[in-house]
Design a binder for these strands. Structure first.
Ligand SMILES: [Mn+2]
Ligand SMILES: [Mn+2]
Ligand SMILES: [Zn+2]
Ligand SMILES: [Zn+2]
Lengths: 159, 159
DNA sequence: TTCTAGTTGCGAATAACTCGCAACTTGATT
DNA sequence: AATCAAGTTGCGAGTTATTCGCAACTAGAA
């Protein structure tokens, strides 16, 4: 019988934690699962809302603390999606190949993009500069195809 | 006689502003110059500090408003630099070819990187997905060569 | 010069996190 | 199973980062 894919990573997570002297708590487990099931792009308050279905007493401060450790462990990644709404950040579970994010600055839609060129680029940088990359975030902003088709006049900038 | 390079862009800035119904004010001009001269990575309070040498009465709120318009005009770019210190943002004047930023998560040093592969990647994405890119931000985090050489044990994660 | 829409300085208000600490777990050890 | 040091959490109170409302003040078109 096949495990649900969001469960696959649980063991490694625990090991990674232990290797660093950290503990696998119910909170961290639930928060990691929330992100793995969501598939994508939740901000901290939304993570809290969802995790509270399992842990009613969960506090926002704990969410931030968990996001921080999961980030450092490379379990999740942080995004800002061009800060299309507000100045906060979003989180998503990391997948095997990492992908890029394009945010349409007119309609706010987010497109996830993959290409081997990205891996190639990272490898090239590591080689040339003698450094090792643990996180790679490529965020793009612009006008999506749909919005471009609507051929509206250039929007006015507020303030 | 050659113009200082931070002055080169001034005319286009004014035009871009006017094209959008915006005005070239002393504040915006000074703030843009501060970023062009700084070369890189100032946060809002630091922009304020520097701009105040020219405009003593300048207010932080105005700095944020100016950063917002300059960003929308494509004059400056916003960065997270892996949020190595705090959750705020950094700003830098945009240059002709855009570059990537690598932040060492051990020592905090920031490395600016360029490669034609980045332009190629952007072009490929625009072509494949029928969208137009106005901002491209590639932020990397990891361990720099210098830190790797020091061969320390994997740092403990706080909290 | 005039006039109007865009801007700014202020201070107050939010939004987005972060901390201090006592109470509570985790998981290693006996 | 019981013990216990070290790691964590819930709270509430900070702090930092950014945004707003509004009256006074320009920029720049006419
Ligand atoms: Mn994604
Ligand atoms: Mn950000
Ligand atoms: Zn769109
Ligand atoms: Zn370093």
């Amino acid at each position: 019988m096949v495990l649900a894919k969001h469960l696959k990573q649980r063991r490694p997570v625990t090991r990674e934690l232990q290797a660093r002297g950290l503990r696998m708590t119910a909170q961290r487990k639930v928060i990691a699962e929330v992100l793995q099931k969501a598939g994508k792009h939740l901000d901290a308050p939304e993570v809290l809302r969802r995790a509270r279905q399992q842990l009613p007493g969960l506090h926002l401060a704990t969410v931030y603390r968990a996001l921080e450790s999961l980030k450092k462990l490379g379990i999740i990644d942080e995004l800002d999606l061009m800060h299309f709404r507000g100045t906060g950040h979003y989180y998503e579970a990391r997948t095997d190949k990492d992908h890029m994010h394009f945010t349409c600055q007119r309609c706010g839609s987010v497109l996830e993009i993959q290409t081997p060129l990205f891996e190639k680029l990272k490898a090239q940088i590591e080689g040339r500069h003698g450094l090792s990359i643990r996180v790679a975030r490529l965020e793009l902003g612009g006008i999506c195809g749909t919005c471009a088709a609507k051929k509206e006049k250039p929007e006015r900038i507020s303030a």
